[in-house]
């Protein structure tokens, strides 16, 4: 059984971020032996005066491959417990958990995710869609406004092409040069592409930048590269990845 879990609005300006809470959740799920978890993706939602986000309005989502469907109830209890005890004062935490069918893609959830990047949505709309799509959606403090971003994150991860993968990769020192084939051997890189979406050949060499991150495209962790003015291929910098 596969799940998607997404959390949103758990922090304040002084606290740890929502991504760290997602990491805490993953650690507890794996330590308990309930399942194996994927990388976390960060999904940017709309920044708007009518949305009460902390600083950037993003949600954090990950997959879980449950070791036994009987673990689901315990996992959900623990996820709720973490949000209730670890979220920051003044935050409005929301939790969404979707049990996925083998070929899971709900166009309604994907559409909701895309809309949350472009327009102000309501809790009522989120709850109505969660009921319709059989997604667990719950709020755990404050106004509970985080349910909107949590459900949107489920849809955006399900879309397969949204967000940046949390964390940076340790591939070598900045300035090191690796072949694409070597990069693809890394367990956290599924593809190496240029900014136009074209894959690079295995023998192409890539110059590593200061901080190397992947983005989530076509259901894969993709390392994006660009050709510098000197003609060399380089990993994209943070400013280039900002729109993902």
């Amino acid at each position: 059984m596969k799940l998607l879990i997404c959390i949103d609005d758990t922090d304040n300006l002084e606290s740890r971020g929502t991504g760290e809470l997602a990491e805490l959740m993953i650690g507890q799920i794996e330590t308990a032996g309930w399942g194996r978890c994927s990388a976390i993706t960060r999904h940017q939602l709309l920044v708007h005066d009518d949305i009460p986000y902390t600083s950037h309005n993003s949600s954090m989502c990950f997959h879980v491959e449950l070791s036994d469907p009987a673990c689901l109830d315990a996992l959900m209890r623990q996820a709720r417990h973490i949000l209730e005890t670890e979220s920051a004062e003044g935050s409005d935490p929301g939790l969404a958990i979707a049990v996925l069918a083998p070929s899971a893609r709900s166009e309604r959830l994907v559409e909701f995710g895309h809309r949350a990047k472009q327009e102000v949505l309501t809790k009522e709309a989120a709850y109505a869609l969660a009921v319709e799509q059989n997604v667990h959606l719950s709020e755990h403090g404050g106004t509970g406004q985080g349910v909107i971003g949590a459900l949107a994150g489920i849809g955006l991860r399900m879309s397969g092409s949204d967000g940046r993968v949390k964390g940076r990769l340790n591939l070598g020192a900045p300035g090191a040069v690796l072949a694409v084939a070597e990069l693809l051997a890394h367990p956290q890189i599924d593809a190496v592409q240029d900014l136009g979406g074209d894959p690079l050949p295995p023998g192409q060499h890539i110059l590593l930048g200061d901080k190397v991150k992947t983005v989530w495209l076509d259901h894969q962790a993709v390392l994006l590269v660009y050709r510098g003015t000197d003609g060399r291929w380089k990993t994209c910098e943070r400013q280039q990845l900002r729109t993902y």
């Binding site: 740890r16 971020g17 991504g19 760290e20 960060r42 600083s55 950037h56 993003s58 940046r164 949390k166 964390g167 940076r168 200061d210 901080k211 910098e237 943070r238 400013q239 900002r242």
Partner: peptide
Amino acid sequence: PDDEDEWAAD
């Protein structure tokens, strides 16, 4: 510094 995943500038 914020969580590195939230950095926007190089």
